[in-house]
Amino acid sequence: MEGKELGLWRSSVIGAIGLLVFLSLWEVLVRTNVIDPFFLPAPTQVIDKAIQMTTAKDAVLLTDIKISATRVLTGFLLSVFVGVPAGLIMGMNPVIRAAINPIISIIRPLPALSWIPLSMLWLGIDEQQKYAIVFMGSFASILVYTTDATMRVDPILRRAAMNLGASPLQILRYVILPGALPDLLTGLKVVLAIAWTCVISAEMVGANSGLGFRIWTAKEWSDTGQVLVGMISISVTVLVLDILFRGLERVLLPYQRKTSGT
């Protein structure tokens, strides 16, 4: 009974109330000078700043979002194209898995930020370097999620397919891939959010646009309001992408929606 769902409508109403209480408390604390607005501007001040950044003559916010999204999605898709096939192979072949696992264990905990020096040395300061930062920040996780998803496919299904005459390639195409898809999509959703956290690292050097860049320069100019707008923009963008991803899941996994709860 403890894990009972509240239902979409009720949970969103409660969520909205929670958010409202949080924002009001924040607003009051700043307006009564309990919190110095220089350290943390009030929500209304942040909204003002956001409006200013979207409507002014040289408005930058929407362009920033677009540019950052391009960088993140390019790096992320590169990770998917390399990580998913590699993960499938690793999931199916214990020898390859045993050989690659230690390497992945070394790479995976490295923060995207730590790749800046090497990526600059190898790729310079252009867009490739930014894609590389996002790639390095998300690749190992995608590989691990794919491997796990592949390994979680019930081995009895492989047997059933073999018994029906499927070749190894057909098993990969018709059993492993669709069988791993639900876990794989869940993993990719998590990694997409991780990829967004890399944008700060990716836009630390050699950038002159993007949300990460905007946060860094706002810091140099002591513009806390703009820092917050940048941060919230990242959250909102990830949230929107998450919703889009859910839509993709519904399209790709129709059977899950129909059979949920059984």
Binding site: D36, W221, S222
Partner: peptide, 10 residues
């Protein structure tokens, strides 16, 4: 100067 403009009085 930039910090002053943004209201840092510390």
């Amino acid at each position: 100067l930039s910090a002053m403009a943004h209201g840092n009085t510390r």
